[in-house]
Design a protein around this nucleic acid. Structure first.
Lengths: 202, 202
DNA sequence: CGCCCAATGTAGGCGACGCCAACATAACAT
DNA sequence: ATGTTATGTTGGCGTCGCCTACATTGGGCG
């Protein structure tokens, strides 16, 4: 076997894979998106990465730890998607509704990740995990407060209103993924479920 | 149908267990409620029932089939809970809100079953499975139509309104189970989440 | 009355999984 | 050069879903 001292990392096996943790996360993300969290297995990821079945344990305490790391990436992506969605509109309420729409779009586009975020799989890691979702919620509360500053729905406690709106949007996203209800033929899923949300949207 | 009338009713091993399917469902339900769907294993249930590890396959094609049977029971129970909740109030809108409250209560009281119903685990059995959830949805649509007959929100398509309300209530139930948001200390979870729903409740 | 058969339960095995323990190798600091 | 440590490997244990025989039992039928 050749040493890894050469500058050309073409494809010899550099006995210490260099970035195994990152590769496991990348491969895990790919399996998660394409086949769902239940199909993410440390052994399988190890094989795909070309290392032995127990190598992943040098980087993740157990399967749940890897899932938690993926969840952290997912929360960040969801937050970014919501934040970016507000750029294309101006009024505070339009921004709020754009966030809701982006939330549903995220669920429809990345169902594997979305289910992972809300399936209670990733153990309740008190530290990083909760703070990630708290950040996302804070984004929502902040936007609601901006809306209320214009007098909109200002009689309601912003946190309650944020939770209620989150419930509405999250419920729509979850029902959409469940597939129990389907948009009529020819209607785009995002359009359909955005309309559903709009019925009760404050 | 009682050929099992041996004179020893104590507990000999009736070499053909008599009601294995029912017992597997009962045991499976118990594990589901206490430890979650992921912990329901055919081998384990077989052992608990005192039969060999492959006996369950005489009654369920595979693990998913047993889960689907449990889901069917769950849908029926959810529907019953919602229907019963309408008995204690009179006005159509109060009945609707009572259904929503019963929905959230069901999720809080039987989280294992609730998660199973909405985790996409039970393969999309085109036949029984979907019809069960359709029946529950029909219950909701019917109640909404009763409300609209009194002029309430009559401008909205009843199916859209039902989907929107279902989204709101389902989202609240799901967020409640996820544990990312918790009621303030001393506040009952059902009361708390019912208030959340009430903010946007039509 | 007795026999066959289909329903039901058993035994053994295969492959995949999570995870543990013991060991090997490479990277790096001294 | 040397020894410590991060990283990867081998082998193994126990559990799981599910497959292929094979055994038992009771009901239907001659």
């Amino acid at each position: 076997m050749s040493p890894r001292t050469s500058k050309a990392p073409t494809k010899p096996r550099p006995y210490h894979h260099g970035g195994l943790r990152e590769e496991l996360l990348r491969l895990g993300l790919s399996v998660l998106e394409s086949h769902g969290a239940s199909k993410v297995s440390l052994r399988d990821l190890a094989t795909r990465a070309g290392v032995s079945k127990t190598a992943p344990y040098r980087h993740f305490a157990d399967r749940e730890a890897l899932l938690s790391a993926l969840m952290q990436m997912g929360w960040a992506a969801l937050r970014t998607a919501m934040a970016d969605a507000t750029d294309s509109v101006n009024s505070p309420t339009d921004k709020l509704f754009a966030m809701g729409r982006a939330y549903v779009a995220f669920a429809l586009e990345r169902p594997g990740m979305y289910r992972l975020l809300f399936s209670g799989e990733g153990k309740s890691l008190p530290g990083s995990n909760c703070s990630e979702s708290d950040d996302s919620f804070a984004l929502l509360v902040g936007q609601i407060e901006s809306c209320q500053a214009t007098g909109w729905r200002s009689e309601v406690d912003p946190e309650m209103l944020a939770l209620s709106y989150w419930s509405l949007v999250h419920g729509a996203a979850d029902l959409a993924l469940e597939g129990l209800v389907r948009p009529p033929p020819g209607v785009d899923a995002l359009v359909f479920w955005s309309r559903i949300v709009a019925v009760l949207q404050p």
